[in-house]
């Protein structure tokens, strides 16, 4: 299996208009991105300069998570 670096810099055909979700603690910019063969949701943190692309299955799996899952994510408040 060949590992392809820079997956997040892969080819994007089109980006939908962004929306900003923010509160007093942080702010993220989310938008739909279209790739050659499909689409994903991009979440971008300007503060941390980090991005994640989530596909429909990953997004769907979020719907059955308990609040504790996100609490455990935040054990490292800035990702480290």
């Amino acid at each position: 299996m060949e590992h392809l670096d820079g997956q997040l810099d892969g080819q994007i055909d089109e980006k939908a208009p962004a929306i900003v979700i923010g509160n007093e603690f942080t702010q993220v910019i989310i938008r739909k991105v279209y790739t050659r063969n499909g689409e994903r949701l991009e979440i971008f943190s300007p503060k941390l300069d980090r991005t994640i692309w989530l596909d429909p299955l990953a997004l769907e799996s979020l719907t059955w998570q308990e609040p504790e899952v996100f609490t455990s994510f935040l054990a490292k408040p800035f990702g480290y």
Binding site: F25, T26, F70, T71, L74, P77
Partner: peptide, 15 residues
């Protein structure tokens, strides 16, 4: 007032 699942301290980031 606001809406948040967690509170993060602006000083050292204790959450």
């Amino acid at each position: 007032r606001g809406n948040s699942s967690h509170f993060r301290c602006p000083y050292h980031g204790f959450t």
